[in-house]
Design a binder for these strands. Structure first.
Length: 424
RNA sequence: GGAGAGGUGGCCGAGUGGUCGAAGGCGCACGCCUGGAAAGUGUGUAUACCCCACAAGGGUAUCGAGGGUUCGAAUCCCUCUCUCUCCGCCA
C-alpha cells in the first residue's frame, strides 16, 4: 500500500497518477486524509491522557515506596475518570485506525509516468517487437496439445481424473523436458547473481497480505481451510516474504533471490478454446526472480531483469515481444510492468510467459521491509519481481515451434539437461 | 495427536507488580590511546506513531500475538501462536 504520509504530501500527484490507471474511487483520497486527521486528533488526546495516568501511577508508586499509604490511596481516587476516558478514546482511536487502514488497502499503486493510459490488455504498448523470423511450420502443424498426445508427453485426461481439469500430468520425456527447463532457468538465475531459494508452497495470511494477494484476490488462490493457509499463486509470495518485518543494511542491497515453485491459480471463470492445453492451467511450474533494491536504483534493476529474461528467450530460440502494460491492465501492486509474450507458431498466438514489475515501496510498506541508509535513517526498500520463466506456455511454444517431421527438436541449451536432442 | 519446558533489545542473558525501554555481557559505531593494530578506555547503539520545521526537544505504544486484572504489568490471569524435549504417528 501507499504510504499515508506520501499521499498526504503529494495528493495532486497521487490523484493524477491514479487516474492514469483508471482508478475510479478517487474520492477515497479525501476521505482517507480526513479520517487520518481524526485519527491523529484522537491519538493526541489519548496520549495526553496516558501521559497523565503514567505520571500519577509513578507518584503513587513513589508514595508507597516511602510508606505514605494514605496519600497514595488519595491519589488513586483521582484516577477514576481518567480510566474511563482512556477506554473511550482507545476504542475510538481503534476505529479510526481501522477505517484508515481499510481505505488504504483499497488504493492501488501509482503507475510510472511512462505507463500508457488504457482500459485493457488491448491498450498495452508494444515496447519491443520481434524483428526476427517466425518459425516456418508445415501446413499441418499441430497445436501443442496434439503434439503432447502424439508423443505421449502430457496426459490432460489423467490429470483431470486425478484432480480436475487444468492439472496436467507430464510423462516420460515430457516430464524430463519440464525438469530440464526448471534446472536451466535456475542455473541461469544463479549465474545472474540470484540466490536460489526453495520456499514453502503454502503461505499464511500475513504473507499473502504482504505481497498484496490479500485482501484483494482471495478468489484467485486455493485455500486450505483446516489450516488457514493459501497455496501460492507465485513464488513471489513466499520469497518476498522472507524479508517481511526485516530491516536490512544498505550495503546488502540489492538482494537478489530466485526460486522454483509450482504455482496454483483457481482462474475462476476462465473457460473456452483459448484455455486449451497448457494455455491456462491451475497448476504450473515457474522460476521467479526477486530483487529488493534501494529506491534510487529500482528502475535499473527492472531493466536488468528485463535483460535477464530476454536472454533466456534468446537462448531458447523463441520469438518474443515485450509489452508495456497500460494503466488498466497494470496489477494492483505494480508501478511499472513489462509482459513478455512468446509466439506459439501452431496456434499463431502470443502467449504471456513472463511479467516483470517494479512495485516501488508498495509491497515493502505492507511487508515493513526497510533498510537503514547512510544517515542511519530507516526507509522502505523497493521490491521487484519477474517470471524467469513461467513454464507451461514456454513448454507449449517449444513443442509447437520446434516440431518437424522427425519429431520435436530440443533447443541446444536444454540438451545437457534433458539428455536427449529430440522427441520422436 | 498427548505430556512437559520455554519465547526479553542485533546476539547472549538478568529481571515474578512500582521511577523498566528494560541490569550485565557480546557485537557494532564513533572518540581517546597507538607508528599502526590488538588490548585498554569513554560515549553511543530498537521500532512505530503523535506534537514540532521529517532540527532540537517532548509524548505515547511496543519484553511472541491478542485480551483481562490493577492507580500501575516484561512480571498475575485467559486465549492463540511459535520453538525445544519426550511419547505416538509418519515420508
Amino acid at each position: 500500500m501507499l504510504q499515508l504520509s506520501f499521499i498526504r504530501e503529494n495528493k495532486d500527484t497521487v490523484l493524477k497518477r491514479l487516474k492514469q490507471r483508471g482508478f475510479k474511487q478517487l474520492d477515497l483520497i479525501d476521505v482517507l486524509i480526513s479520517e487520518d486527521e481524526k485519527r491523529r486528533k484522537n491519538q493526541q488526546l489519548l496520549e495526553d491522557l496516558n501521559a497523565k495516568r503514567n505520571k500519577l501511577s509513578k507518584e503513587i508508586g513513589q508514595l508507597y515506596g516511602q510508606g505514605k499509604r494514605e496519600e497514595a490511596e488519595k491519589l488513586k481516587g483521582e484516577t477514576g475518570n481518567l480510566k474511563s476516558d482512556i477506554e473511550k478514546f482507545e476504542s475510538e482511536l481503534g476505529e479510526n485506525k481501522q477505517k484508515v487502514f481499510d481505505i488504504l488497502v483499497q488504493i492501488p499503486n501509482i503507475p510510472h509516468e511512462s505507463v500508457p493510459v488504457g482500459n485493457s490488455d488491448e491498450d498495452n504498448e508494444v515496447h519491443k517487437d520481434w524483428s526476427g523470423d517466425f518459425p516456418n511450420l508445415a501446413e499441418d502443424a499441430l497445436p501443442h496439445w496434439e503434439l503432447a498426445k502424439k508423443y505421449d508427453l502430457i496426459d490432460f485426461e489423467l490429470g483431470a481424473k486425478i484432480t480436475g481439469s487444468g492439472f496436467p500430468l507430464y510423462k516420460g520425456k515430457g516430464s524430463k523436458l519440464q525438469r530440464a527447463l526448471v534446472s536451466f532457468f535456475l542455473d541461469e538465475a544463479e549465474k545472474g547473481g540470484y540466490l536460489e531459494i526453495l520456499p514453502p508452497f503454502l503461505v499464511n495470511e500475513e504473507s499473502a497480505f504482504g505481497t498484496g494477494q490479500l485482501p484483494d484476490k482471495e478468489g484467485q488462490m486455493y485455500y486450505a481451510n483446516a489450516d488457514d493457509l493459501y497455496l501460492i499463486p507465485t513464488a513471489e509470495v513466499p520469497i518476498t516474504n522472507i524479508y517481511r518485518n526485516v530491516i536490512v543494511s544498505e550495503a546488502d542491497l540489492p538482494i537478489k533471490l530466485t526460486g522454483y515453485t509450482p504455482c496454483f491459480r483457481r482462474e475462476a471463470g476462465s473457460y473456452g478454446a483459448h484455455v486449451r492445453g497448457l494455455n491456462r492451467v491451475h497448476q504450473f511450474d515457474k522460476v521467479e526472480i526477486v530483487q529488493i533494491q534501494h529506491p534510487d536504483k529500482s528502475y535499473e534493476s527492472l531493466d536488468q531483469m528485463v535483460i535477464h529474461i530476454e536472454n533466456l528467450l534468446h537462448k531458447l530460440e523463441l520469438p518474443y515481444r515485450i509489452l508495456r502494460l497500460c494503466g488498466g491492465d497494470l496489477g494492483f501492486t505494480s508501478n511499472l510492468t513489462f509482459d513478455f509474450e512468446v509466439f506459439s507458431a501452431a496456434q499463431k498466438r502470443w502467449l504471456e510467459v513472463s511479467s516483470v514489475s517494479n512495485f516501488l515501496s508498495f509491497q515493502a510498506n505492507r511487508l515493513k521491509l526497510r533498510f537503514k541508509d547512510q544517515n542511519g535513517k530507516t526507509q522502505l526498500a523497493h521490491t521487484l519481481n519477474g517470471s524467469a520463466l513461467a513454464l507451461a506456455r514456454i513448454y507449449a511454444s517449444i513443442l509447437e515451434n520446434n516440431q518437424t517431421e522427425e519429431g520435436i527438436v530440443i533447443p541446444e541449451v536444454l540438451r545437457p539437461y534433458t539428455g536427449f536432442a529430440k522427441i520422436d
